[in-house]
Amino acid sequence: MADESTRNGQPAAVSIAPVTRIRPRPLSPNIQLYRPQLTSVLSIANRITGVISSLGAVGLVAWLAAAASGEPAWSGFRNAVVSLPGQLVLAGFTYAFFLHLCAGIRHLVWDTVHGFELRMIYISGWAVVFASVLLTALAWAIGLLAIA
């Protein structure tokens, strides 16, 4: 079945019929098919929240710049943040930050080659999910209580 010869160091294609050379082979589906699992979902969530946290860091620079350029600019920034959409965005940043933080700690533990048994992978994964929600709630509870 296999053509043993190699050309230009390229592995010989398994040629069944000459037709296969004319028409490029299809690639089987991957992301379109593969079942979402805690493993892959948390990985992509870590990535997305990392990007969001980076945008949060841009917000931090904007905040510092506003504070540096005087009270009017700072008030404008503050008014935008305390508005309802501003608060929602801030809540989103908070959750993204905490999820990225918890997932990052999980990665640090993995770097020491601990917690790789499948059961531990799932336990630490759900711990990240719950801890990030809990920490976000806690941060906002303290913040809102401080106002009251």
């Binding site: 028409r23 299809p26 690639l27 089987s28 992301i31 379109q32 979402p36």
Partner: peptide, 14 residues
């Protein structure tokens, strides 16, 4: 499945 179209990002032949 992940929420992407079934033929998301696929080559013409795939």
């Amino acid at each position: 499945r992940f929420p992407v179209p079934r033929n998301f990002g696929m080559d013409r032949q795939s």
